[in-house]
Design a protein around this nucleic acid. Structure first.
Lengths: 325, 325
DNA sequence: GGAGTAATTGACAACGCTGTCAGTCTCGCG
DNA sequence: CGCGAGACTGACAGCGTTGTCAATTACTCC
């Protein structure tokens, strides 16, 4: 493994300059910086987090503000965070709310996940702390902090378009809990697609709150209508799997007689039969982007707030197909 | 934060001796060792993983052999492993099979999870590699390597006893895939409890393979019998959630008319309505125990193979209650 | 009791990096 | 054309630990 000394020799500078380049210090001439970067690339150098952690007095603890009722989401987030942090030598501290945040000392930065990422009290505390922080899946309720997320609206529109392309002309939508902005965004995306069809596709919406129980009720409601939809788009996978149960009860075969799609690509979507077609958020990518941003901020990056939108992806599985006959 | 030098001063030895104690080297007299341990405890010392990682030439990469079809299980395992490793300064490398294992160089140890933990080829390769390794949820197919796990049989017996205590006298059991020894163990535990009732409780078993789809079939089978069971114990949560769907289809209210219990405490068990009563394996604890064992082996612990049985726990939620009437 | 050997312990360098502080270059300007 | 200020760059120490090897101690056996 090459060290900064190797890079320094290769670039013809002192090893301290190399250190400076990799710490984002701004007292290096651009031309020198580029020379160093190039040399590092050539010999395949990457910083040794252990040495850095040992020497630098700075804290390496990153707090993860996470209190999501969906356990699978929480687990995915945790994995993403741990994976992103371990290679950089950061240490993860779980924070489940304001009290935990205040109690924790010596944090170097914070990653906030929904719904905490949009909680005004949390946001205030974060702002006052002057710590760098990133809001994952953040809503525009506040302009402070860096943000990473996906375009829920575009994703919901794509998923709806997919159903339309399969031939569905009557599509049901089960909304998420109204208190989350993300529910509104997903509904908006659904409506975008419906409106673009200029009347060719009918829509029916039913309300839900992201829970399995609410999905069951909503699905029964939708499916007991005279002119029931041939496809249901649930705002998350939990509710989509409830749709499956409802369809099963009514002896509707999925996907032959009813198509069901969800959102989030949570483990549930694969645990169930048939496996649910859904939208992948790339939570791990979001988290690793968050850690990157924090890492930059901690070493002097003072550019204006980032607002990074990551790619989403429609994951086609077995729960959706062309409408019957 | 105190360092080994502080401990050395406190204990009246050289700091190198302290280092030796904390590395489990056996060239320290027991009396000295105890003196050092005591001094360390007094001043609250713990080793600095960064410094250790920096100085020691030894690899800190631990491979995680994991290829379980259940995604939620895999995620839980990963979190447990990451959490356990980060505080010790180990680095996690995911290995999804034999090829990946052979391709990975410089591993310091391996944690193998089911079903890979019981795969003869894997076991052979592990044995030949002379790397320390721990088998999680291991079966007795091979005596090599350290093992950690829970007592599946006792846990299944407890869960069955719980159903009997609720008053059920006719209980169905859905088996797991026959190729896994764990399926046999859970069934054995179920039978233990049934036999202990000396005829008071009837049992019916149906076969499954841990998948949702198989659970659906098995549940329909069980529930369409003339004298259907008042409770069903599925060998994992995935199949238990399928039972819920089957009950829903037949208009059997859970838990009023039918009790359903599962095994694993996977996220699915909470995602579903009603939330499933299940057995918690404490996967995170298993993983952290595994890392501890590896860590010991890597620093010279040569005691005979560990075989650690962790506690399990019946998690009572909403899917089981007294039988009807 | 003394030599010889094994069991313990200690001294010191070094791991790869960052912090501190002291140089060395640029410029702009009189 | 020289000087001072500010922009860069470099030298060196030291973070807390382990590896190497030498020194000390304990113990065995005539």
């Amino acid at each position: 493994m090459p060290t900064i000394i190797d890079v320094a020799r290769e670039a013809g500078v002192s090893f301290k300059t190399v250190s400076r380049v990799f710490n984002g210090e701004d007292t290096v001439r651009p031309v020198t910086r580029e020379k160093v970067r190039e040399a590092a690339r050539r010999i395949g150098y990457s910083v040794n987090p252990a040495a850095r952690a040992l020497r630098s007095k700075a804290s390496r603890k990153i707090g993860l503000l996470l209190n999501n009722p969906s356990l699978s989401y929480s687990e995915t987030v945790q994995i993403g965070a741990l994976l992103a942090m371990q290679s950089e030598g950061y240490q993860l501290v779980m924070l489940d709310g304001l009290t935990a945040f205040h109690a924790e000392e010596g944090l170097a930065g914070v990653v906030a996940c929904p719904p905490l990422a949009n909680d005004p009290d949390i946001l205030d505390a974060l702002g006052e702390s002057h710590l760098p922080f990133v809001r994952v899946g953040a809503e525009r309720v506040s302009q402070i902090g860096d943000k990473v997320g996906i375009d829920d609206r575009a994703a919901a529109r794509e998923m709806t378009d997919y159903l339309i392309k399969l031939g569905h002309r009557r599509i049901g939508f089960i909304e998420g809990a109204a208190i989350y902005d993300v529910s509104r965004r997903r509904l908006a995306g659904f409506n975008d697609a419906i409106h673009r069809s200029s009347g060719a596709v009918q829509s029916i919406t039913a309300s839900g709150d992201f829970s399995y129980a609410s999905g069951l009720l909503a699905a029964e409601d939708l499916l007991s209508k005279d002119n029931r939809p041939t496809a249901i788009f649930a705002a998350n996978d939990e509710m989509a799997s409830a749709c499956l149960a409802a369809a099963y009860k009514m002896n509707l075969r999925v996907p032959d007689e009813l198509s069901v799609v969800g959102f989030d690509d949570s483990p549930v979507s694969r645990a169930v039969y048939p496996a649910i077609t859904t939208v992948r958020q790339g939570v791990r990518d979001l988290l690793s982007a968050s850690v990157d941003i924090l890492s930059g901020r901690m070493s002097g990056d003072t550019r204006p707030a980032h607002d990074i939108i990551h790619a989403h992806e429609v994951i086609v599985r077995d729960s959706a197909g062309p409408p019957p006959e």
